[in-house]
Design a protein around this nucleic acid. Structure first.
Lengths: 198, 198
DNA sequence: GATATATTTGAGTGATCGTTCAAAAATAAG
DNA sequence: CTTATTTTTGAACGATCACTCAAATATATC
């Protein structure tokens, strides 16, 4: 006994994400969103409450998707370390003009958001922390399989990888650096592989 | 035969830089600037033409200052590689709530700016390129003094260091990671020192 | 087909955006 | 002191901002 929404929520969120990712939170206006989502202001607000909440939800979608990509690569790899190295080499395969040439959306949000922001900054920091925890788990797995020494610190290794990825993907947002990014990714991947105790 | 301006241009630019760095280009309004600079709109526009040009000039001031800090550290160090390592350890000495806990302003601008932006993005990319050229020069100097092998690629090493710094400083913008940042910086610095051929 | 419920529309809200400009104020030179 | 030149002021501009809401529209259920 009611009308059903004309849109698929995840699909709409994907479009919002694309726009926010490209133009940033402040750089994206509601008029931009109306066009990209093909929705009128009333519908957008009925569905997502506010621009901020819409961004927040899009950011979470981004994190879920990114985590999925990492997990897939890890699952396909022979060892945890090899999976991580593969993941980084994949990040180095940049196609100009596509999402692959854009810095991490979490980083963009971290940098665009004031320290005190009670919503977007908190979400971004939490999701970044989640990602780092995943990396730490990978290194712990590598310890358990004897791939790396047990006297290494999985948390420190995780923050190092996190930082390397921050740098790599930020570097990738520069124009005309495609080859450089691939070489950089390979460099980083090799360093990770070298962690393996022979 | 005229009135003289009541402000010191560089001082004013420093205040604008501080604000833009903290809040971003889009996140900073002219009313914010009027307060921070203690100038009325007419004076601001007479002096800097537009918000965009003011940001552009503040960004250049940032780059000059940053380069100065790097050069100073390099000049004080025993070798090029040691200077670079010192510089990175300095970047790791983060004081929460101060500029040291903020990501690189050039990176922030790179990420906030659309690919096609004809002014701010271009300036940011050019200044980033300049920084990388400085790093390359350091590695070339290290080669000439025999500190690192001549079969290494100074440009590739420079982009790696650039990327590491991007990552480190972005990481430092997270809250409650002070110790982690210092450990991370030390890690990176040690890797650079390890490049030295015995 | 009538009813109840949910969604969509789009004109309109007040606030704030970056920017302008004529008038007022200040000062160096004669 | 007068004059010429420059800077500063701050009210006001049109445009755009995020957002609201009453009316129109659509549909599941009976």
């Amino acid at each position: 006994m009611a009308r059903q929404a004309a849109y698929d929520r995840t699909e709409v969120l994907g479009k919002a994400l694309e726009l926010f990712w490209a133009k940033g939170y402040h750089g994206t206006s509601l008029r931009d969103l109306e066009t990209a989502l093909d929705m009128r202001p009333g519908s957008i607000y009925a569905a997502f409450v506010s621009k901020e909440k819409l961004f927040d939800e899009a950011l979470r979608l981004y994190a879920v998707t990114s985590r999925g990509i990492l997990k897939d690569t890890l699952a396909r790899a022979a060892t945890p370390l090899a999976g991580l190295a593969d993941h980084i080499r994949n990040l180095g395969r940049v196609k100009p003009g596509t999402a692959s040439s854009r810095a991490c959306m979490l980083v963009k949000t971290l940098l665009e958001t004031p320290d005190e922001d009670p919503v977007l900054r908190r979400t971004a920091e939490r999701l970044i922390g989640d990602a780092e925890a995943t990396f730490a788990a990978v290194f712990r797995a590598a310890q358990e399989t004897g791939q790396i020494p047990t006297d290494t610190d999985p948390e420190l290794l995780a923050s190092r990888v996190q930082s390397e990825i921050f740098g790599l993907r930020t570097y990738a947002q520069r124009t005309d650096v495609v080859d450089r990014v691939a070489a950089l990714a390979d460099d980083i991947a090799r360093d990770i592989e070298r962690l393996a105790s022979v």
